[in-house]
Design a binder for these strands. Structure first.
Lengths: 209, 209
DNA sequence: CCTACCGATCGGTAGG
DNA sequence: CCTACCGATCGGTAGG
């Protein structure tokens, strides 16, 4: 995946449109117009609309699996510190890549594109295996209690982050935060969500700080 | 909303298609063919494809807000029992209406249909207000600790239920449950998710059973 | 990299 | 409730 500037530009334009109109609700003409390129360039650069979407997924997910390699081998952090890092990192990523996370969610619901579904499943498996490593290490070191459902634990992180993203307007209204700028609010919500999830993890793992 | 048998039939056929192909990915011809009715009947009975979707939402959500009225006034249940009821009920509803919950999620992401978005926001507000009532009652009775973020607490329930729904295949594989029938698996997952969420609520509210 | 076009399908309905 | 059709738009590309 070596993309030139124009391809990168088209991808990020398409990302915006897919996030707010959906894949089927976005035409290649919409993308071409918004990106200020000729319609034929979509096929020229990516092959088809479907392959453009696949390119977007490959581009946006390529760094995801690898970023935890270093963490796992870091001996100076205990399992709980590692969990906190993962939680902060995930919530931060959702906040920074809101558009792409919406598209991912969309693809998870429909499962229409086999290649993307497989890519997402692989990612999930890797994340689960990674989570399991940390938890088991913590259990061996008597920091965490046994008998924890790794999948539900992971769903707790991803589910709350996702709902926080989808219910931003509700959160803002409920807590009277309409005056905040978008960035300030996003930062606040990120902190709140991160802390909430850490508290839940602490409880479910019987971890005592 | 008085629907005749044919309209009910068309709605449930459309629900299936919308859930697995999305709104924009489903044509009125797809619906007409699957429901074995003439294409013109979509406009005839519902006005348009968009209004058909709105009818689906009205039909499927009309009982949602009202079902908690009785619960709130039930004096024989303490706040914790009421929370457990809400958790069980929500998870059960996600399990029973998997298709519609996918469509709801879809609409929450795109927010294209203003009427549906407003309907969903109203529902969310009501559910939040309801949750707040129970929590505050529990706090007054010294059963729950203070300083709980109601929105994040609610996101915890809806987020985990949603992720459990979207990651069924992952859960099945991770725990080696491929041999189970779909119904048996759904039931198991429902129990597991419900218990998991209750444990989290117990911890976050400092509730001692 | 663009023009000019393809066949297919879309949501919807006039008229009966 | 159905037939037969509308104009618009879709994804995609031949040919230059």
């Amino acid at each position: 995946m070596n993309l030139n500037d124009k391809q990168i530009h088209i991808l990020s334009t398409a990302e915006k449109l897919f996030a707010c109109k959906g894949f089927d609700g976005t035409s290649i003409r919409d993308i071409a117009e918004a990106a200020q390129v000729n319609i034929a360039m979509i096929s020229y650069y990516f092959g088809s609309k479907e392959k453009l979407m696949q390119s977007l997924f490959e581009e946006r997910t390529q760094h995801m699996a690898l970023r935890y390699e270093n963490l796992i081998q870091n001996e100076s952090l205990n399992p709980w510190d590692k969990l906190c890092y993962v939680i902060d990192d995930y919530v931060e990523r959702v906040k920074e890549k809101q558009r792409f996370f919406k598209i991912m969610l969309h693809e998870q619901i429909l499962e229409k594109n086999t290649l993307i579904t497989e890519l997402l499943n692989e990612l999930k498996q890797k994340n689960l295996a990674f989570m399991e490593l940390i938890i088991k290490d913590g259990q061996k070191k008597k920091l965490f209690k046994k008998g924890v459902d790794i999948v539900l634990l992971t769903n707790t992180l991803t589910g709350i982050a996702m709902q926080a993203l989808l219910n931003k307007a509700i959160y803002k209204k409920f807590h009277g935060l309409e005056a905040l700028s978008e960035e300030a609010f996003d930062k606040l919500l990120k902190e709140k969500a991160s802390n909430h999830i850490k508290n839940l993890y602490k409880a479910i793992l019987n971890y005592e700080a």
